[in-house]
Simulated scan of single mutants.
Amino acid sequence: MALTVHSRFHPIHTDLAVVTLTGDVDISTVARLRDDLAALLGDGARHLILDFGDVAFMDSSGLSVLTGIFPLLRDSGALALVSVNPRIREVLRTTGLTRLFPIYSSVDTAILVLRSGSET
Rank of each mutant, 00 (worst) to 15 (best):
A2H: 11
L3K: 05
L3Y: 08
T4M: 12
T4S: 15
R8N: 13
F9P: 11
F9I: 12
H10R: 04
P11S: 09
H13Q: 11
T14S: 12
D15A: 13
A17D: 01
A17W: 05
V19I: 12
V19M: 02
T20Q: 07
L21W: 02
G23R: 08
D26S: 06
D26K: 01
I27P: 00
S28R: 10
T29A: 09
V30R: 06
V30I: 14
R32K: 12
R32Y: 05
D35H: 09
D35T: 12
D36P: 04
L41E: 11
L41I: 15
G42E: 09
G42K: 12
D43E: 15
G44S: 07
A45V: 09
H47Y: 14
L48D: 01
I49N: 02
L50I: 14
D51L: 14
F52H: 07
G53I: 10
G53T: 13
D54K: 13
V55R: 05
F57H: 03
D59S: 03
S60Q: 08
S61W: 02
G62H: 06
L63R: 04
S64E: 13
T67Y: 10
G68A: 05
I69C: 05
I69R: 08
F70R: 04
F70T: 00
P71Q: 00
R74S: 07
D75L: 10
G77R: 04
A78E: 06
A78V: 03
L81G: 08
V82E: 03
S83A: 15
S83F: 00
V84Q: 01
V84H: 05
R87H: 10
R87I: 11
R87G: 02
I88W: 03
R89E: 06
L92A: 03
R93N: 03
T94W: 03
T94I: 15
T94V: 15
T95M: 07
G96R: 03
L97W: 10
L97H: 07
T98Y: 01
L100P: 01
F101D: 01
I103A: 02
Y104E: 03
S105I: 11
S105H: 14
V107M: 07
V107Q: 03
D108N: 14
T109H: 15
T109V: 13
T109A: 15
V113E: 13
S116V: 05
G117N: 13
S118C: 07
S118E: 08
S118R: 15
T120V: 15
T120R: 14
